[in-house]
């Protein structure tokens, strides 16, 4: 060992430089070897498809992925003029509006009440995060029966207190709301866990000194908890919006996009265009619109919301 160090000190600057470069090269190839599997998978199944989808969106493509003819912008123009695509976009935005704020407010409420020091809290934490373990298929199937027109619990309850039964999944006014309720319920678990983690990161001393200054429960909540939680709230809102744009399974099981396309959310619309109608070109154009939406939303959030976020 000491011999090695001595040898290095004896070396002239030129060969030391060479040694250094050799080591850098060796490090580079070792690093590449370590990253190779990840680069291959992510490159092949995420980067490449994005470019390929963009390419497809300018062509007429059949369901085996063969480009039939160049289409220019006509796939996009077709979507622009298609009333069913417009309905689907409207449903997608409405769905985000129905689900995102409610999910965040309810899970914040749950996180705040389980951050109290009372007995039995672990039990409640498990209960509130349980929907994280509920798959979209299982969750939607449960709600399919809860919202069932004749045997569903919801309608039985309504009938019991003298109201008319509602066609939760068959009326175009209610279907999107029903899918939204299901989605909010399914997303609570994840958001609850993240927000609770954020709450527990806030130091207890802050609350203690606030109490010494005579701050009450609500003052503490709005002057300490919410501002200090804002980075986590920011993260949660980005993720929840993106998730809402990606919803698929609950639509497939609950409504199949109907009635009258009122729940034909964008991913479902892409799926139908490609796998029911066999138009991969227009489906790709829709996928690019979804990609652009997610990208723009994330950038806007980073630009405008992050400025207002407090960091500890």
């Amino acid at each position: 060992m000491t011999d090695q160090i001595a040898a290095k000190q004896l070396m002239d600057p030129a060969s030391r430089d060479k040694e250094k470069r050799k080591k850098a090269r060796k490090n580079f190839w070792t690093a590449m070897l370590f990253m190779l599997p990840a680069i291959a998978i992510i490159g092949f199944f995420l980067f490449y498809p994005m470019f390929k989808t963009l390419y497809f969106s300018f062509f007429v493509v059949n369901s085996r992925g063969d480009t039939i003819s160049f289409a220019g912008l006509s796939n996009y123009l077709y979507l622009w003029e298609s009333s069913s695509f417009r309905t689907s976009m409207k449903a997608t935005f409405l769905f985000a509006l129905y689900t995102v704020p409610t999910t965040i407010i309810v899970s914040l409420f749950l996180a705040v009440i389980t951050n109290e020091k009372v007995r039995g809290i672990p039990f409640f934490r498990v209960a509130f995060s349980s929907t994280l373990g509920v798959s979209v298929a299982a969750g939607a199937t449960i709600w399919l029966i809860l919202l069932h027109p004749s045997v569903g619990v919801f309608n039985n309850l309504l009938a019991g207190i003298g109201f008319d039964r509602i066609g939760w999944l068959t009326s175009s006014t209610w279907a999107l709301i029903s899918v939204s309720i299901t989605t909010i319920w399914m997303n609570l678990g994840f958001n609850f866990i993240i927000l609770l983690g954020g709450l527990q990161n806030i130091s207890e001393e802050l609350y203690e000194s606030a109490r010494v200054d005579g701050a009450g429960y609500w003052t503490q909540l709005f002057k300490i908890t919410i501002p200090l939680l804002s980075p986590t709230l920011f993260f949660v809102s980005v993720v929840t919006i993106i998730n809402s744009f990606q919803s698929f399974g609950q639509v497939d099981i609950l409504t199949g996009g109907g009635p009258n396309n009122s729940t034909n959310l964008i991913v479902y619309s892409i799926y139908r265009e490609a796998f029911e109608s066999g138009f991969f070109g227009t489906a790709s154009a829709q996928a690019m619109i979804l990609f652009a939406l997610v990208l723009i939303l994330t950038i806007i959030q980073f630009k405008f919301v992050e400025k207002k976020v407090h960091y500890q």
Binding site: A38, L46, F47, T53, R64, V294, T298
Partner: peptide, 25 residues
Amino acid sequence: MFFLFVSTLLIPWEAAFLTNYITIL
């Protein structure tokens, strides 16, 4: 490399699944 990896958080799988389906096919 780290930036490239993390930037894929912005690519929704639901926008890539069409081409991936063709690949798998």
